[in-house]
Amino acid sequence: MQLKILQVNVDRRRNAHHLIQRVVLEEEIDIVLVQEPNKTIVSKDTKWIVGKSQNTAIWCKNKACGITGHETGNGFVNITFKDWSIYNCYISPDVEQRTYEKCVDRVMQHARQGGKEAIFAGDFNAKSTLWNSTTTDRRGEYLADWVQALNLTVENKGNIPTFVRGAQNSIIDITLSTQKMASKVTDWRVSTEESMSLHRHIFFKVQTVGKNRRKEGFVKCRIDKELLIDTSQLMGDNISTLQELNTALHDAQKAATSWGAREERREEPVWWNDTRQSQPQGKVQFTQEGADTGEKKTARSNRNIRLGGKI
């Protein structure tokens, strides 16, 4: 089974949030990872799993993708599968360096304790040549230390900026993966299409075990009327013929429709149950391959205590 994933910071913007519905439809997205979501939208729509600080949210469009649980924290949302997990992360550019380091530590240590292979995606507001930024700042240095400590792979490809504001641009939206997950992550790319946000859409795929299985029977569905209206207005800007109007309304209806379980399925998927605690299954041993030299080795040694001990 191959999961298609969309990652984007929508800057709290309503239009950027609703554009996701259209992108999910067109690109056949399975999982959406949003940073700085529109708080009104995600608080009213139960399909979103929202972080404690409402800075991150995840929408699993494909209910058959194999999610076994989820956990929310300050600055991240984590969804788990049988033997791996995804962390959707956001750290504000306004926090001081020490607070930033604590936020990074919280996510990485949670992943260690969870004992699963993992993907880390989000707006880290950090610059480093490790993910093709033109410069490296203090935040980038600290995050890069964790990348080396856990032997993570940077999935970012090329030098297309992920953040653009006028003449200012940078690469601060990052995707990282543990070594075993790195071989399963493919087709990572930054879209240059309009996102209605200062951040661009990022797409990638994850190859997993298993496949979708469809069951016979009737399916219940629900149409979000407000979303239908907003999506129709969004699609209506370039309509000039009756055929284009018909197509736009049809696409808007599909984007605003959420599908429930088939009638013969009596139980909801376990990951929808907020009271269920995901159970760690085993431990993943992270190792540092290769030799560090010079200042990087010294920096890693000095940070061993803060990073939770020797790697």
Rank of each mutant, 00 (worst) to 15 (best):
R222N: 14
T208I: 11
R214G: 02
R222G: 05
S195D: 15
T208W: 02
K205C: 08
Q207P: 04
H201A: 13
E216R: 12
H201T: 08
H199I: 00
Q207E: 13
I223V: 15
K220Q: 05
G210W: 05
K220F: 03
S197N: 02
N212W: 01
F204K: 01
V206I: 13
R200N: 11
I223L: 14
V206H: 04
F218T: 14
E216D: 08
Q207C: 08
E216S: 10
G217F: 01
G210N: 09
V219Q: 15
V219C: 11
G217M: 10
K211Y: 06
R214K: 03
I202E: 00
V206Q: 01
K211V: 06
K220R: 13
G210D: 10
S195E: 14
H199Q: 07
L198F: 05
I223C: 15
K215L: 03
M196E: 15
K205S: 12
K205N: 12
K205D: 07
V209L: 11
N212V: 04
N212F: 01
H201I: 10
R222A: 11
I223F: 08
R200D: 00
C221G: 11
F204P: 00
K220A: 07
T208M: 11
H199L: 02
L198Y: 07
C221H: 13
K215D: 07
V209C: 08
L198P: 06
G210C: 09
V206S: 02
F203C: 10
E216Y: 08
K220T: 08
C221Y: 08
K220V: 04
F203W: 09
R213C: 05
V209D: 14
N212A: 12
R222P: 06
R214M: 02
E194G: 13
I202C: 00
H201D: 07
V219L: 10
G210T: 02
Q207G: 08
I223A: 15
R213D: 07
E216V: 02
C221R: 15
V209Q: 15
E194L: 14
F218N: 15
F204M: 02
M196I: 06
R214V: 01
H199K: 12
R200S: 08
S197P: 01
R222T: 12
R213T: 09
K215E: 07
R222K: 13
R213H: 10
G217H: 10
S197M: 03
K205M: 05
R222V: 09
G210K: 09
E216W: 06
C221M: 14
F218P: 11
R214I: 00
F204Q: 01
E216H: 07
K215P: 04
F203D: 05
V219P: 11
I202N: 00
E194F: 06
G210Q: 13
H201Q: 10
H199G: 00
M196G: 08
R200M: 01
